[in-house]
């Protein structure tokens, strides 16, 4: 090792190791995020050479004049609230059940997780077919059980469509929460549970005072991840309803896409994106702070 070159300084080596990942990440993930903010202050159709400065006009338009923005906003809020409650709740119940030793436990865990790995667009296509008003699964079951009165045009009725779509979403996402809770349950001290049982604690008391407190961290993680993934719901909307009927399933991510890539108003589309980005950051930044603190405490 007589030849001393730049390559031997640890700093230079670190730079070489970091460059590809950080470079591509900065250009293709961070830059578009900055660009979306810039675009939101401009008027542009995506093709012309010049992009005209528009100040806050795009924001004024989407908040005051866009007939769809607030519908999409409301639907996104409903969707997020539902996604924060139901998939984690069902996932927790399944995890608690499947944490017990029982026959075919492995097979059941695999079944509940299976929808997670399927392309959301394929889930959308599958469920669209199951909701088919004439030959779809749901209306066939209703007919079979003599419940003709319940037959619906599941995705065609604007009062029901959003919730029909949400059922498909639950089906796909429950497995994800379940797996995280199962992992969290590994951290629950078995001997503590047994000690509590011996001391005469009921099942509910064990759950309430031993299991639940031990799951607090997992719970936070599941809830934050569910929030984030619900805010970016796009594939399922695009594939199942395209936002219809009559915008009743329209959501922010989808509406931003429609404005930019289909109506070719990049300014308005980006302004919508920025509002969604800010909502996401309001969840993400406190969460990152919290997890950093946790990590520091663990060190």
């Amino acid at each position: 090792m007589s030849r001393i070159s730049h390559l031997q300084s640890p700093r230079a080596q670190a730079l070489i190791l970091l460059a590809p990942a950080i470079g591509i990440y900065t250009i293709f993930a961070i830059w578009p995020m900055i660009e979306v903010v810039i675009l939101s202050f401009q008027r542009w159709n995506g093709l012309d050479a010049d992009r005209v400065w528009a100040g806050l006009e795009n924001y004024r338009y989407i908040f005051a004049d866009d007939p769809v923005y607030w519908i999409a906003f409301k639907n996104t809020v409903i969707w997020t609230v539902l996604s924060v409650i139901f998939p984690p709740l069902v996932g927790l119940l399944l995890a608690l059940g499947l944490n017990e030793k029982m026959f075919a436990r492995g097979a059941m865990r695999a079944i509940y997780y299976l929808p997670v790995i399927i392309a959301p667009i394929a889930v959308a296509t599958m469920w669209r077919w199951m909701y088919d008003p004439f030959f779809g699964l749901f209306n066939q079951i209703m007919t079979g059980m003599g419940l003709q009165g319940w037959i619906q045009d599941w995705l065609g009725d604007r009062d029901v469509a959003l919730y029909s779509m949400f059922i498909a979403y639950i089906w796909q996402h429950v497995g994800f929460s379940m797996v995280l809770f199962l992992a969290g349950l590994q951290g629950v001290d078995r001997s503590l549970v047994e000690a509590a049982r011996i001391d005469g604690a009921s099942r509910w008391q064990v759950f309430r005072y031993v299991t639940l407190p031990a799951l607090q961290v997992t719970m936070t993680i599941v809830i934050v991840l569910s929030t984030i993934s619900s805010l970016k719901a796009f594939d399922i909307v695009y594939g199942m309803t395209g936002g219809g009927p009559a915008q009743s399933t329209q959501m922010l991510a989808m509406w931003a896409f429609t404005q930019s890539m289909q109506i070719f108003d990049f300014g308005r589309g980006s302004a919508i994106s920025v509002t969604l980005l800010l909502i996401t950051l309001a969840v993400v930044v406190p969460y990152l702070r919290w997890s950093q603190k946790r990590e520091d405490a663990a060190r």
């Binding site: 578009p32 931003a256 930019s260």
Partner: peptide, 16 residues
């Protein structure tokens, strides 16, 4: 970056 949704950046990604 693990937390920011690329779904909000489809238009600028296309532009880039």
């Amino acid at each position: 970056g693990a937390m920011i949704p690329f779904q909000v950046m489809l238009a600028p990604l296309f532009t880039l």
